[in-house]
Write a protein that binds this DNA or RNA. Sequence first.
DNA 1: GTAATAGTGTCTATTAGACACTATTCG
DNA 2: CGAATAGTGTCTAATAGACACTATTAC
Lengths: 247, 247
Amino acid sequence: MTPAPDRADRPPRPLTDYPRPSVAVDTALLTIVDGSLGVLVVRPANEPRGEWRLPGTFLHEGETLADAVRRSLAQKAGIHGIEPRQLHVFDDPARDDRGWVLSVAHAAATPAERIPAEPRTRVAAVDRLGELSPMKFDHDDIVRTAIARIRDDYAVRPDPWHLLRPGSGDADETEATTRTGAAGGADAAAEPAGSFTVLELRTLHEAVLGRPLVRDTFRRAMLPHLEPTGRVRRGTRGKPAELYLRA
Amino acid sequence: MTPAPDRADRPPRPLTDYPRPSVAVDTALLTIVDGSLGVLVVRPANEPRGEWRLPGTFLHEGETLADAVRRSLAQKAGIHGIEPRQLHVFDDPARDDRGWVLSVAHAAATPAERIPAEPRTRVAAVDRLGELSPMKFDHDDIVRTAIARIRDDYAVRPDPWHLLRPGSGDADETEATTRTGAAGGADAAAEPAGSFTVLELRTLHEAVLGRPLVRDTFRRAMLPHLEPTGRVRRGTRGKPAELYLRA
DNA sequence: GTAATAGTGTCTATTAGACACTATTCG
DNA sequence: CGAATAGTGTCTAATAGACACTATTAC
């Protein structure tokens, strides 16, 4: 934007002459817990019995909204490497009793292993959101909007928000993440970093969407967006599954 | 939003102790000109040779973003009755050389008859956007985002942004807006306010989408979302078309 | 071998588009 | 009546889901 001060041709006054709002960011950080979507909520230190809320902070000078989101998640929950997506600006002038505060709502996602246990944070299953409601401010709305957005994205593309465990980094070694086939030489059959089976992908999508998906239809819909690695998952029951990467 | 000042439990300082950005709104006002999408651009009075830009203004205290959009369109282009939709916050700290300015981009739409001719405004066809580029700030991006958004919405629903001439108001009486059938009593066959034919609706959607639509498929896709009025358009060639309202 | 899981062929129901046919008006 | 436009029946191609069949492993 950047309008002339008003209609008439007055000499421009510096921007600081006009009242300005505080700008905050609030983030619905989504993850998978117990096979379904969850959202990270926090309770501030000075209100140990207060309402749950989403992690947020005020935007600092010279800072990007995405950076403010990353800073708030790092500070309040020890979470790093987040790629936030803007949802909506909540602008009711009376929404915050401390003054004029706009909130830019964001959504983000990270695997549960990346969320450290902390005393004042909690991951709540989104189908049990009522147990926390009403959340502070308009945070219930933000969570609903975030869920709608991630479900929309997962309807078409494989894991667009990167909830599968990343190949690099310090992710815990769960079940069958890295294994070497019994046959063949040492790690000639090692799994490519970040690769996954179609079953893992479908299980993730079912968790995000909150409903079962048809096995063969899902595979056929996703294959065009996947790149075969030529490797297979070893050490499981049944026919070994092929490993894929996002195309 | 609405974080504790920082991690430690300091007594809260008033919000005004922290630096705050200016917040602006910029609006891509879309309309139909010559059978295709157009966008309203303005040139400020003090830069008659400068770059074209979208109408915008700074957010005033106690004001809603939507109200700021309406105020800027009324002031800069004499347009009223707009229902803006939020698109995205542009937050590059260096995007405005006058200082720290966030811009909340919006999209809106109105029939061309509602846009008065003014000296410093112009409606540019979006497929000739290159002729104005580069626009000031990130306004090219905003226009592109607005077009994507309106096209998305028009793919599924009949005229969701209300670009058809409204039934009430002072819209000019173009072609066949209100007519009385030759047969029957006086205005027993008058057209219900705001009703339209499927042809009018399809022509509008083709203009928005920028591509021709299949006649019968479009009708079958839209009929479930339309409410028949029982009246027909009179005074045209061929079989009279039924008049519908949005369901 | 059996159990288990991965991957695929194929049938069916649904839907978008193509196309042609019928319906109703004006002149 | 013919021209023009609205509205509809129906065929076809593409697609999602259902279902069953084959493939390949562990045990």
